[in-house]
Simulated scan of single mutants.
Amino acid sequence: MAPRASWKGFLTVGAVSCGVALYAAASTSERISLHMVSRKSGHRLRRQFVDEETGRPVAPEDQVKGYEVAKGEYVTLEADEVAAVVPESDKTLAITAFVSCADIDTVYLDRPYFLAPVDKASAEAFALITAGMAAAKVAALGEAVLFRRVRKLLIRPNAEGGALIADTLSFDYEVRPAQEAFADVPDVTVTGEMLDLATHILKSKAGVFDPAAFDDRYESALEELVRAKMEGKPLPRPVPRREEKVVDLLEALRASAGAQAKNSKAKPTGRKAAAKKPAKTATGPTTRAPVKPATPRKAG
C-alpha cells in the first residue's frame, strides 16, 4: 500500500517544474502507545480544559487562544483573526539556491521527508534535477507553505536513488547558540601518548552506519512488560547497572588499547578459521510477534 502524501505541489527550479509529493520519512506510529485509564472502571480518560482559577470546565465555544503579555494578563486572538495571518499556499516548492553538501549544518535539520514525483509525466524533469544535484554534490534550499506556515527546506539526493530527501529547517531563532552549552567547558590540549592511544582505539572501532542494527531497549522492555501482563506471567526484573569506578584516563586508554590488540591477535585466520566448528544454534523461535494491546472501548 502506497504511503499517504503529507503535501502535494510543484517543485520549481528556474523554468523547470514538476509535480511532487512529500512523504513523512520517519514515524512513531509503530511504537507501543500507552493511554491513561481509570484504575476502577478500566475506561479510557479524556483531558478537559478547566478554568485555572475556578477549576470549572470551559465549553468549547468559550475557549479562545491568548498571548500572555504579563503575569495572568492575555491578549486574546479569535480563530478568524489567526486564520487571516496564515499565508496562502500556491502549492509551490521553489528552489532559491544550491549549496555544497559539505556546508550543511545538521543542527538546523528539523523533520525528514521523501520528495518524489507524483506521476510519470513529472518523472523525467524530476530525474533531471536529481541527477544534476547528485553530480554536482549539492543540496537545494527551497521554500513552501507547509502546514499553515512558510517553511524553509533543505533538499538532498537520496543515497538509494529514485527520490530526494527534504528536511524542514529550524529558523535561526529556534536554534540555541552552541556557546550556551560549551561556555563552561575548559580548553584542553590532547597530545602525545594520549592522542596516539585515542586514535588507535577509534580506528579499532571503525564500523558502518547501519540503522537496522539500532536497538530500542526501552521499546523492547516495554513490549516484554506488556506481554507479561497480558499472559499473566511474572514481571521482568530490571538488570542493575554496574557501578563505574573512577580511573586514570591515560591508564584507561592503555588498558582499552591493550584489550583491542589482544582480541585482534586471538581471532583465527586462514585454515584455522575455516577448520573451526560452527557454533550450535539455539532451537525454537528467534523472533517475537509484536504486541498488539487490545483496542480501548470508545466512550458512549
Rank of each mutant, 00 (worst) to 15 (best):
D80S: 12
E81V: 10
V82I: 15
V82F: 01
A83T: 08
A83V: 03
A83P: 07
A84C: 10
A84D: 09
P87V: 05
S89G: 09
D90V: 07
D90F: 05
K91T: 10
T92Q: 11
L93F: 04
L93C: 05
A94R: 15
I95Y: 01
I95F: 05
T96N: 10
A97F: 12
F98K: 02
V99R: 13
S100M: 11
A102D: 15
A102C: 06
D103K: 14
D105T: 00
T106N: 10
T106G: 09
V107K: 04
V107D: 12
Y108P: 06
P112H: 05
Y113I: 03
Y113S: 02
F114Q: 04
F114C: 06
F114P: 02
F114K: 04
F114S: 02
L115C: 08
A116E: 11
P117D: 03
D119R: 00
D119H: 01
A121N: 09
E124D: 14
A125N: 13
A125Y: 03
A127E: 08
L128H: 12
T130L: 07
T130W: 07
A131F: 05
A131G: 00
A131C: 03
A131R: 14
G132W: 08
G132N: 13
A134E: 14
A136C: 03
A136L: 10
A136P: 07
K137I: 02
A139E: 00
L141R: 15
L141V: 09
G142D: 07
G142V: 06
E143D: 11
A144H: 07
V145L: 11
V145I: 14
F147A: 11
R148I: 02
R149A: 15
R149D: 11
V150I: 14
V150F: 03
R151C: 12
K152S: 12
L154N: 04
L154C: 10
L154I: 03
L154V: 07
I155R: 03
R156Y: 06
R156T: 13
P157D: 04
P157K: 00
L164Y: 06
L164P: 01
L164N: 04
L164H: 07
A166F: 00
D167A: 06
D167M: 05
D167E: 13
L169C: 09
L169W: 04
S170L: 13
S170I: 03
S170E: 07
F171M: 12
Y173D: 13
Q179T: 14
F182N: 12
A183Y: 10
D184L: 05
V185M: 14
P186G: 05
P186N: 12
V188E: 11
V188D: 03
V190K: 09
M194P: 00
M194A: 15
M194C: 09
L195D: 11
L195A: 15
D196S: 14
D196L: 11
L197I: 01
A198V: 02
A198F: 01
A198H: 08
T199W: 08
T199V: 00
H200S: 12
H200C: 01
H200L: 09
K203P: 01
